[in-house]
Write a protein that binds this DNA or RNA. Structure first.
Length: 868
RNA sequence: GCCGGGAUGGCGGAACUGGCAGACGCAGCGGACUCAAAAUCCGCCGGUACUUGGUACCUUGGGGGUUCGACUCCCCCUCCCGGCACCA
């Protein structure tokens, strides 16, 4: 409501965020080249990337935070003269589109494209400087065609293969999930839905071929958070051990008559008193074939195991087992040990069979105790004193720092030596070998869903699996498909898609109706940005060589929730492309930054809790600059951010003060406006200059090291506060002060040279531009500059001499307690500082009559007088 | 259980290699302006005690230690968040 109140600041002094932001948004949209990366540039490149969003319909605050960090960095790098690539796109295949289709009866394609349009509007409203000419939308054929192309290449190389296997199935998604998409036994999308196990024919990508390299190359990723590297290391789960064959002494059935166990502690094998099989081990079926009672018991174990797995509780299952009545021969000592089936043995790790050594393994010990199996000591703790007799340890003794006993010819060896010698013997005599196993499994990519990339193969009665020829790509995902969550892929109900001809024999054939996991889309999208419109291939290798260099994307920014899934797949994809000769870099991402989550009232924002803050509401209320800047100001970007609406209001107040400072003090028509800043400033003018140069230094350091933009912005606030104190506020306030107190605010009357004001205002506008680009452009224009080139202005530099203090205040401690402060010249020697401290009245009083033991002077920091 | 990260005023957070704990912001309190409110501006703002414009003591989850000096380093413990988990 507009009032005629004469006490309001003049209209043009009011910070009208919406007006300013609208004005610049329009200008930026009319000049798409502004934020575009240069092609064939001789400049140094800088590729800054934020994780692309799923087009759910609206940005959430986590997006705003993510993109505000990236945009600040991109703008900073532009101003440092780099050729910056700062693209954006849409990870637009996936299940939510199908759910929406069922709910609203809207085709997934329409729903998705409408969401993209809406979110793009939001991004533009927020003022993010993206090169939209390179926009990638993964659900469009010009992108997913290349998913199919990659699939064919991998199929040719045996990296894509089809097999029947046990897979994770989410009943709510009605599709298979990759191991990486199962979180604590639950579906990653449905945290309340246990994943079931199903046996299905599926396509897999052979990521395990790169397991070793994915692990080793983590060492190259010095620019990644250690947390993420460790998570990937654990996920890959490399484990060195030995395979040992235990002979069953006769044919059991199709699965054979030996049991191969995997152990990391072959040195303990003389203590093996049983062999334990996973209930689903194939040989168990043969063993129980003619024993219904045993079969029933095994079925019980399988059921227990499955249930525990579904509850995500396999670690807490109570150990149960059943003796099979058979014995297996330990090849090292010829001893026959009983063969059991136990519910704590996992089929999907190692060989699904173990040797049980109760004396030296916690789990085996627990099991042996329960069933009265012999517990044998074969390792004694290593004594540091050879004379000392070795004490018998508390069992189970599980550490490696021991020597072997009761182990035949290996007795007396250390555990390490024994493992080496015993593995060598196994290999020499053909009953085993040293080996390496991984926790990482091949990537199951088949999804029984509609809204994804069709897998480009057909099934022919005569020729079997036949890949679609490259020239026939893309296999187009049909529109107008009825979507349900039952009965397998919706594509099964589309005859014109399903029925085709065999590319080999021309006879009738069926298309594959499964689609690809959407994580394939995001495994290589960042390469496409570099060459987004290529229709000859996914991209041109020379272009990639420029943008990726030797180490990949210069800076990638996103949530830590992608630490395993997306980032391990992307690393795998890069290595495959490198081996195909398409890229030169071994790793996709040189530096990774994982931002903290946003929470409110102590909890993650969620619709259930009703604590969601909408970016649109914040923009409406405070403007885009304030909203973005708050996400950077509330805390450092790596930490969890506790959202407070009042904080955004605080940032807005700050921006309004900056704006008013410019309105009242910008004077580009002044004859002295463009003069150089005088050399020998004094008093408040010198203080302002010093503060200015210190602020430039501080913010530059924040960008170059820790990204603590919260302190960068605090620095800008301090600078502004000082300016308002020293240069002056609006006239009426000053007059009021005089009227009331009878004297002018001395700080408000300082005479500041016009060129200094101009210098200050130029630098503030530039320093502000990574955080509040709209206002920064407005200010730039207000001080008479050409805002269309602001992004290519040089980032300000500080002058160390001008930033330096003339005098510094030194705290004086006595016995470590602060007692006084003295002011000394910045160049004062330690002796001079000591003299000044000792001459201080408070210090004199405190040390009177006591003995000084020593005086510690920390240059420019503090003095501590130690007394008795 | 293992591996990471964290705990600082009423609140969000500063303090970068050991050197003034609490920058900056929010909330609050007092004041100016106003018929009034909003906005804006000025001042105060960790706790306790006292002789209260000052001074002393206490204070960075808890306990010990190293040091002239510890939010910071070392040992032990509590709680919170994230990841992994009968991985043989």
């Amino acid at each position: 409501m507009a009032t005629e109140d004469k006490n309001l600041p003049a209209r043009d002094e009011r910070y009208d965020a919406h007006g300013i932001e609208q004005k610049w948004m329009d200008r930026w949209q009319s000049d798409p080249s502004l934020y575009a990366a240069e092609v064939n540039s001789s400049k140094q490149k800088y590729y800054v990337l934020e994780m692309l969003p799923y087009p759910s319909g609206a940005l959430h605050m986590g997006h705003v935070r993510n993109y505000s960090i990236g945009d600040a960095l991109a703008r900073y790098m532009w101003m440092n003269g780099y050729n910056v690539l700062h693209p954006m796109g849409w990870d637009s295949f996936g299940l939510p589109a199908e759910n929406a289709a069922i709910k609203n009866n809207t085709p997934p394609r329409e729903w998705t494209l409408a969401n993209i349009a809406a979110m793009k509007t939001q991004m533009k409203r927020l003022g993010f400087g993206y090169d939209w000419s390179r926009e990638v939308t993964t659900c469009l054929p010009d992108y997913y065609k290349w998913n199919q192309w990659f699939f064919l290449k991998m199929y040719e190389q045996g990296l894509a293969y089809r097999k029947k296997s046990k897979v994770n199935w989410c009943p709510k998604c009605a599709t298979v999930l990759a191991n990486e998409q199962v979180v604590g036994g639950m579906c990653w999308r449905h945290e309340d839905t246990p994943v079931e196990q199903r046996e299905l024919e599926q396509w897999f990508l052979r990521i395990t071929k790169y397991a070793d390299e994915l692990l080793h190359d983590l060492e190259k990723l010095g620019g990644w958070p250690e947390k993420v590297r460790i998570m990937q290391e654990n996920w890959i789960g490399r484990s060195e051990g030995t395979l040992v064959d235990f002979d069953l002494g006769g044919t059991i059935g199709p699965a054979g008559s030996t049991i191969t166990v995997f152990t990391t502690r072959v040195d303990t094998i003389f203590g093996a008193t049983s062999v334990q099989l996973a209930p689903e081990h194939p040989i168990v079926k043969d063993m129980t074939a003619r024993d219904a009672e045993l079969r029933a018991k095994v079925e019980q174990l399988i059921a227990e195991q499955r249930k525990a797995k579904e509850v995500g509780d396999i670690g807490a299952i109570e150990k149960h087992g059943v003796f099979t009545g058979r014995y297996a021969k330990n090849p090292y000592n010829g001893e026959a040990v009983p063969v059991w089936v136990a519910n704590y043995i996992l089929m999907d790790y190692g060989t699904g069979a173990i040797m049980s050594v109760p004396g030296h393994d916690e789990r085996d010990y627990e099991f042996a105790k329960k069933y009265g199996i012999e517990i044998r000591l074969v390792i004694l703790p290593q004594s540091s004193d050879p004379e000392e007799t070795m004490a018998e340890p508390q069992l189970p003794f599980t550490t490696m720092d021991g020597i072997l006993v009761n182990s035949g010819e290996f007795s007396g060896l250390s555990c390490e030596d024994a493992i080496q010698n015993m593995s060598a013997q196994a290999e020499a005599e053909g009953f085993g070998k040293a080996t390496v196993t991984f926790r990482l499994k091949d990537w199951g990519i088949s999804r029984q869903r509609y809204w994804g990339t069709p897998i480009p193969v057909v099934y022919c009665q005569k020729d079997g699996i036949v890949p679609v020829p490259e020239k026939d790509l893309p296999v187009i995902l049909p529109d107008n498909v009825g979507i349900t969550l039952s009965g397998g892929s919706p594509l099964l109900n589309v005859p014109e898609f399903l029925n085709t001809t065999c590319p080999k024999c021309g006879g009738p054939a069926r298309r594959e109706t499964d689609t690809m996991d959407t994580f394939i889309d995001s495994s290589w999208y960042f390469y496409r940005y570099a060459d987004a419109h290529n229709d000859k291939g996914p991209f041109d290798s020379k272009t990639i060589a420029y943008w990726f260099g030797a180490d990949g994307i210069d800076q990638y920014i996103g949530g830590v929730e992608h630490a395993i899934l997306h980032l391990i797949y992307s690393r795998f994809w890069t290595k495959v492309m490198r081996d195909m000769g398409m890229v030169k870099n071994d790793e996709p991402v040189k530096r990774l930054f994982t931002q903290g989550m946003i929470i409110k009232n102590g909890a993650k924002m969620s619709k259930n809790l009703g604590n969601v803050v909408s970016p649109d509401d914040m923009i409406e209320q405070y403007g885009a600059d304030s909203t973005r800047m708050y996400t950077l100001f509330a805390t450092s970007p790596d930490r969890e951010l506790d959202w407070q609406d009042e904080g955004v209001a605080g940032v807005q107040r700050f921006l309004a003060r900056v704006y008013r400072f410019f309105v009242q003090n910008a004077d580009p028509m002044h004859p002295e406006w463009r003069d150089p800043v005088p050399g020998n400033l004094e008093g408040p003018a010198r203080e302002i200059q010093r503060r200015l140069h210190r602020t430039v230094k501080k913010i530059t350091e924040d960008f170059e090291s820790r990204w603590h933009f919260n302190t960068s912005i605090a620095g800008l606030m301090e600078l502004t506060n000082q300016l308002l104190n020293d240069i002056g506020r609006w006239q009426e306030v000053r007059e009021r002060q005089v009227k009331l107190t009878g004297k002018a605010n001395p700080a408000g009357t300082a005479e500041i040279p016009v060129p200094l004001i101009a210098d200050v205002q130029h630098k503030i506008a530039l320093l502000l531009s990574p955080f509040a680009p709209y206002l920064a452009h407005e200010l730039w224009e207000m001080i008479g500059e050409d805002a269309s080139t602001m992004l290519r202005q040089s980032w300000p530099k500080h002058d160390p001499a001008l930033a330096a203090e003339d005098e510094i205040e030194i705290p004086v401690q006595i016995n470590g307690k602060l007692r006084s402060k003295v002011v000394v010249p910045a160049a004062a020697t330690d002796d001079q500082v000591t003299q000044a401290a000792l001459a201080d009245e408070k210090v004199k009083a405190a040390i009177a009559g006591k003995q000084i033991v020593k005086v510690i002077v920390v240059p420019k920091k503090l003095v501590n007088i130690v007394m008795k």
